[in-house]
Design a protein around this nucleic acid. Structure first.
Length: 744
DNA sequence: TATCCTCGAGTTCC
DNA sequence: CTCGAGGATA
């Protein structure tokens, strides 16, 4: 890299050239950051470019460019692509990494369907192409749009580019009126080498090349790139394609799509594994990148019965090939502080190429992982005795997260010492303690720890939470340390505009902001003064309270005020729970020392006796919510009733216009709003299946019978629950009645 | 009390 | 994407 001329000694002409060069570099970096099709600059290098640009602009204000990078916020969403909402979510798949995982996948499905002893199930197995997934929508046989996967819900409209790909027919015949075809866009090794040799830019690997080519603003550039497409799935359809996965794929072929020729139908996990080895053996000769084999349950009716987990279908899995590895030196171990105060060690590595990606960091999880053994001194799974200066073998777990696979003890420096985990927060200096039974050290600084505060704020504006456009991690860090417009807690975000108006120096005149971006940011913030209760709760960043639990709580309470008062009522109970846990822990330790059996129930009961009925009722109500247990409840209640935390939340609430209660569950189901409990053995469907069924009909499925239960569904051999239900006057129905009801 | 499943939290590179 | 642990269940 050439030595940079100091800003002060630049001539006007040199400054113009330099500003142009910087604008180009920064623009390219922004695009790379956004489009993932080029190697990215490090944050430090990126910042250095921006700083130099700003310095030159300050020295030569009259030379500032119209498209100055300082006018743009961070990586501007430079997309010329429209957004398209997928009619049916684009899925991701669960992964299997060894034979055992595949056997379990099959076993899980049989268990769920209650087919334990029956003949082997049929699956399809096909190579998992390492490209990018694309969804094609055809209406009356015409291609109407093509969308990238995006986040699964919404993708980018790349229709014009998709039309230039030879494997993608513009028109298909003999199909349902409306159908979405899904598949993978990829580039062969040969085409990839030719493209890179032809000059212009060089891509790191075929996948990046395919991604970069598909996301060209000019479709003519895409046309010139040798992209290909394999179809493997379908979304909405007005008529079924077949009754099995296999038949449907055959149907796709007759429509004119390429389906991977190595797709096979296999009976049972053994056959799947055989085909996996076959594909693995052929891998080097295929001429395109694959990263595993996908297995799907063949029978579509069974697929439908199995349904989905949060993000993945239960009826499919991706069996990944072993990851690539590389050796490098561990130069240092740094400690990062998370939003809950967790201290996480990170390995700083001499940069090394692992499967086409330059890796310089790797997670080390916690103290035990680095030591290779737990606090009792027993070796732990995956753990290694890792020391600074060691040669370590890196792989990317699931081809993404860098991890340490192995340590070369022969090359360990003689003076290398075991890593001593810090007992203080590297950021605020507070004690960092590791609770007994916990694997992580936690900073006890709470609200006073700046690292925690920043991470909490980042979480607050993140996607599932307040999701404020134009306010990402980078901006949060900037505002946190800002003297004029500080943002130290969530409420500060909502007072930004007013404070900016009152300031002499305006945000829009700052580095990294312009007229437009400042106004847009304020607009985005305004829009969030109305926020769904579930998002609001999730945004608070309370430990153990994630998106799902936040949704559960929101549905249960409906209004923020109701939840807050419930927390106030339950406060003594939460304190009691925590005290009882602590007492139990020390009692167990003492009992172990003295060689007697611990007495825990008594103390717990004694503490519990002292509670007011109101407190107890409020607590029981919380614990009664499905998915909410004592740990979450205690965390929630103590946070909400801690005076400083609560004051901060109240300040935030005062700035909001409305915390919107969740919409009542659609009244589509016959069981909407009802709470049902299952007991005994169901003979015609498994418990798990029945639960999903009931929920689809709008019911809440609880584990135990209470006065709030509407129906108890009693299978064979129902016991105490049935007795209790009778005593409480709860309606008890048998399996036949349930089947009739659930068919509606 | 033990076991299974799902969620939460933390992390990397693009 | 993975690990740990919370929560549900047998």
């Amino acid at each position: 890299m050439p030595q940079e001329t100091p800003v002060d000694s630049l001539t006007d002409d040199q400054a113009i050239a330099e500003l142009a060069r910087l604008a180009n570099l920064i623009d390219a970096a922004n695009r790379a950051y956004h489009q993932r099709d080029a190697p990215e600059l490090s944050d430090a290098a990126y910042d250095a470019l921006k700083r130099r640009n700003t310095a030159i602009e300050a020295r030569f204000p009259h030379l500032k460019r119209a498209d100055s990078p300082s006018e743009q916020v961070g990586a501007a969403p430079a997309d010329g692509f429209g957004k398209i909402r997928h009619a049916v979510r684009m899925l991701s798949l669960a992964n299997a990494f060894d034979d055992q995982d595949v056997v379990e996948f099959d076993a899980r499905i049989r268990r769920y369907l209650g087919l334990d002893d029956e003949a082997a199930l049929a699956y399809t197995a096909e190579p998992k192409i390492d490209g990018l997934s694309l969804s094609l929508r055809y209406e009356n046989g015409q291609l109407v749009y093509a969308a990238t996967r995006g986040d699964g819900e919404t993708g980018e409209d790349v229709t014009a580019n998709a039309r230039t790909i030879g494997d993608i027919p513009a028109r298909i015949t003999g199909t349902p009126d409306v159908i979405e075809i899904r598949g993978e866009v990829y580039m062969t090794h040969q085409d990839f080498s030719a493209l890179n040799a032809a000059g212009g830019r060089s891509f790191a690997n075929p996948r990046n090349a395919a991604a970069g080519s598909l996301r060209q603003l000019d479709p003519e550039i895409t046309r010139a790139r040798p992209l290909r497409f394999f179809a493997y799935a379908w979304g909405v359809q007005s008529a079924p394609l077949g009754s099995t996965q296999w038949d449907s794929l055959e149907r796709l072929k007759t429509m004119g799509f390429s389906v991977n020729p190595l797709t096979r139908r296999c009976l049972g996990p053994k056959a799947l594994l055989e085909h996996y080895r076959h594909i693995e053996a052929l891998r080097p000769t295929l001429g395109y990148d694959i990263d595993g084999v996908v297995y799907k349950l063949d029978d579509l009716d069974l697929q439908e019965r199995l349904g989905f987990r949060a993000t993945t279908p239960r009826w499919a899995i991706a069996h990944k090939f072993p990851a690539e590895t590389a050796w490098t030196r561990l130069e240092a171990i740094d400690i990062q502080v998370g939003r809950t105060g967790a201290l996480s060690p990170v390995a700083r590595l001499a940069p090394v190429n692992v499967g086409g990606v330059l890796v310089s960091n790797a997670t080390l999880h916690n103290e035990d992982y680095i030591a290779g053994r737990n606090s009792q001194g027993e070796p732990i799974r995956d753990g290694r005795d890792i020391r600074i200066g060691d040669w370590v073998q890196i792989y990317r777990a699931g081809d993404v997260i860098p991890k340490i696979a192995d340590v070369d003890l022969a090359r360990r420096p003689v003076d290398a010492k075991p890593f001593r985990f810090p007992d203080h927060c590297p950021d605020c200096g507070s004690a960092a303690v590791r609770e007994p039974g916990d694997s992580t050290h936690r900073c006890t600084g709470g609200l006073i720890c700046p690292a925690q505060a920043i991470e909490k704020l980042k979480h607050f504006v993140s996607r599932g939470a307040f999701d404020i456009e134009g306010l990402g991690a980078r901006q949060i860090e900037m505002f946190f340390t800002d003297d004029l417009l500080p943002v130290r807690e969530p409420v500060d975000i909502f007072t930004l505009a007013a404070r900016d108006a009152a300031n002499l120096a305006k945000l829009k005149n700052r580095d990294g902001f312009g007229d437009r971006s400042a106004a847009k940011l304020f607009e985005a913030i305004e829009a969030r003064r109305r926020i769904p209760l579930s998002r609001f709760l999730f945004a608070l960043g309370i430990r153990h309270l994630g998106e799902v639990a936040a949704g559960d709580l929101a549905r249960h309470f409906g209004r923020w005020q109701d939840l807050a008062s419930a927390a106030d009522l339950a406060a003594p109970a939460a304190a009691c729970q925590i005290a009882a846990d602590a007492a139990e822990l020390s009692e167990r330790a003492r009992a172990a020392d003295e060689g007697r059996r611990p007495e825990v129930k008594k103390t717990r009961d004694a503490l519990w006796q002292g509670l007011s009925p109101d407190a107890r009722a409020a607590w029981e109500d919380l614990i009664g919510i499905e998915g909410v247990g004592a740990v979450l409840a205690a965390s929630l209640v103590t946070t909400l009733t801690q005076p400083k935390e609560r004051a901060s939340i109240d300040r935030l609430v005062a700035e909001l216009i409305e915390i919107v209660p969740p919409e009542a569950r659609g009244d589509a189901g016959v069981l909407t709003g009802k709470t049902v409990v299952f007991t005994g053995t169901l003979t015609r469907m498994t418990r798990a299946e029945a639960k999903v069924r009931a929920e689809a009909l709008g019911a809440k499925v609880a584990g135990s019978v209470s006065a709030r239960t509407d129906f108890l569904i009693a299978g064979e051999g129902a016991g105490s629950k049935a007795t209790k239900a009778a005593a409480l006057g709860v309606t008890v129905i048998d399996e036949d009645a349930w089947l009739a009801m659930s068919r509606g």
